[in-house]
Structures are given as C-alpha cells and as structure tokens.
C-alpha cells in the first residue's frame, strides 16, 4: 500500500516537474514569472491529441506537440518578453497572465469547449505490471520514462554542451555574458524552446493518464507550477524537480492515508504555505544570493 502510494506520488510528481521546468528555466534567465507556460501545457495537449488521431503514432505526436510548442515559445519570447525586458517584472507577469487567458479561449474557439479524450487503446510497446498488491499501469511507465529521458537530456544540455555553458553564464550574469561574446538572444530562444516543449510533453502525458483534455486544463497547473518553483528556490532546475516530487508525494500520501476535507489540489498550496512559513527562501536557494 505504501509502495503503491509512493509510486503514484512519483508519477504525479514527474508530470509536475516537467510542468514547472519551463517556468523555472525562464525565471532563471529573465527573472520573470511566465504563467503562459501553462498555456503551452494545454495547447500542447491538443496538438498532441490531434497529431495522434491523424498519425496513430504516439512518439510522433509527442514530437509534433513538443516542437510546435517549442516554436511557439520562441515567438512568445521574441515578440512579448524581449520588448518588455528592462521594464518592471510586474508588466511581464501581467502580460503572461493575459496571454494565458487568451490561449485558453483560443483553444475553446478552435477545438470547442467540450472535454476530449485520447483514444483508449494506446499502442504502447510495453505492458503494465500487476501483482497482488501493486499496480503499475503501462501509462505510468510511459510517464516515468518520458520524464526521465527529458530531464536527463536537459541535464546533459546544460552541463555538458557549449550552449549549456552559455545558458548557465547568462543565468548568473546576463550583462557580463553578453560582454563575453554570448549572443543572449539565442540563449533565451533556446531556453523558451526547451521550456515550452517540456510543458507540452507534460500536457500530453496528463491527457493520456487521465484520459481527458479541456481548454481549462492549464488552470490548476499554472498555479501549482508557481507553488513548485517558489518552493524549489526560484529558478533552480534541480530544486524544481525535487519540489515537484515532494508535492506529488505529499498529495498522494495525504489523499491516500489521511483523506482530506478540502480538494486535493489545495494540498500543494497548504504544503507550500507551511514550508514557506518555516523557510521563507524556499527549500533550495543558493547560499550567497
């Protein structure tokens, strides 16, 4: 029972970590909170579903959804955030909320307000595990594998490649990074491409796991994502993953053992309030900043 709950928690936490990663990456470079990242989560799920219906190929629909949202991310930063850079971060925040609301309504206009579902029989190349007291659904394995692959890819890009070095330098000191010859426009575009494609992957996975997508599916993740990146120490990718797993586990364990008189989604925020009361800097903050 405990093992089962922990596995459930990690599956949920995986999706959260991908959802929060986009906003974390954006924050670490531009110091703005990008709520519209959750718009890419919803829109990505729709693009993924439509691609799946059209191609009948899950891997391909993941790729199409992620690349489409990645390109969308590049547009958003180029035409919305870069012109606002240097102004108060509140302006960017309000802009991102506006864009997020717009996206929800755009989906409603384009795909209709009703809930849609993924086809029931996904052709996964592996099956689930079912023993007497443990169930691991094949979809969960899909979620865990996809998350692991994406996070490892991210880790590799950031720590081992030249663009990753540029990314870290830019996150630490944007002005000096420019003076050292780093074209920060390219770095920021790369950053948004990754962040938005991760959000799309998370949206597609949630669509598959709960078997429904809707124009408002990004609403709760938008706020939960904020809770996670604050908890993770604002702009710290590793912190965000740990915080996401923690929230996923707390939600499942509290829901599974204690039961709760409030909606499940409120648990994350209550946990954040408690943790921030004890540790106002978030769980993982750099020492000297």
């Amino acid at each position: 029972m405990l093992l089962q709950q922990i596995i459930n928690g990690i599956v949920v936490g995986s999706v959260y970590s991908l959802t929060a990663m986009g906003a974390t990456l954006v924050y670490s470079i531009l110091r703005i909170l990008d709520i519209a990242n959750a718009g890419a989560y919803a829109l990505g799920a729709y693009v993924g579903l439509f691609s799946y219906v059209a191609t009948d190929n899950l891997l391909l629909s993941f790729l199409i959804g992620m690349i489409a949202m990645g390109i969308w991310g590049i547009f958003v930063q180029k035409f919305l955030y870069l012109p606002l850079l240097g102004k108060s971060p509140l302006i960017s925040l309000i802009t991102s909320i506006g864009l997020f609301i717009f996206l929800g309504d755009f989906i409603r206009l384009w795909a209709g307000p009703q809930i849609k579902d993924f086809p029931a029989d996904l052709k996964l190349p592996f099956s689930g595990i079912k023993t007497e007291n443990l169930t691991i659904m094949s979809v969960w394995i899909l979620v865990l594998l996809t998350t692991a692959i994406l996070l490892l890819t991210l880790w590799y890009l950031i720590t081992k490649t030249k663009i990753g070095l540029a990314w870290r330098a830019t996150a630490q000191d944007l002005e000096i990074a420019k003076a050292m010859g780093i074209n920060v426009n390219v770095v920021v575009a790369f950053n948004f491409f990754l962040g938005y494609s991760f959000a799309a992957a998370a949206g597609i996975m949630i669509g598959i796991m709960y078997n429904f997508i809707s124009p408002t599916m990004g609403d709760v993740p938008a706020y939960k994502m904020l809770a996670i990146i604050v908890l993770g120490g604002l702009g710290n990718p590793v912190g965000a993953v740990v915080a996401a797993m923690l929230i996923g586990l707390i939600e499942t364990l509290v829901g599974g053992y204690i039961g709760f008189f409030l909606p499940r989604d409120s648990i994350a925020f209550i946990a954040v309030i408690i943790i921030l009361l004890i540790k106002p800097q978030g769980l993982f903050v750099r020492k000297n900043i």
Binding site: A166, R168, A169, Q172, D173, A177, M180, G181
Partner: peptide, 22 residues
C-alpha cells in the same frame, strides 16, 4: 568589468571558457 563579476557558480575553467566563447 568593475567588481570582477566572475560567474559565481561556474568553475574556474568554465569561467575561462566563457571568456573564449567566440
């Protein structure tokens, strides 16, 4: 730059590599 402004969370050799970015 004034005040050195080395990249605090990069290693020495990574800082130097950023200097040779171009």
């Amino acid at each position: 730059p004034e005040g050195r402004r080395v990249f605090p969370d990069l290693s020495v050799v990574e800082n130097l590599k950023v200097g040779a970015y171009t």
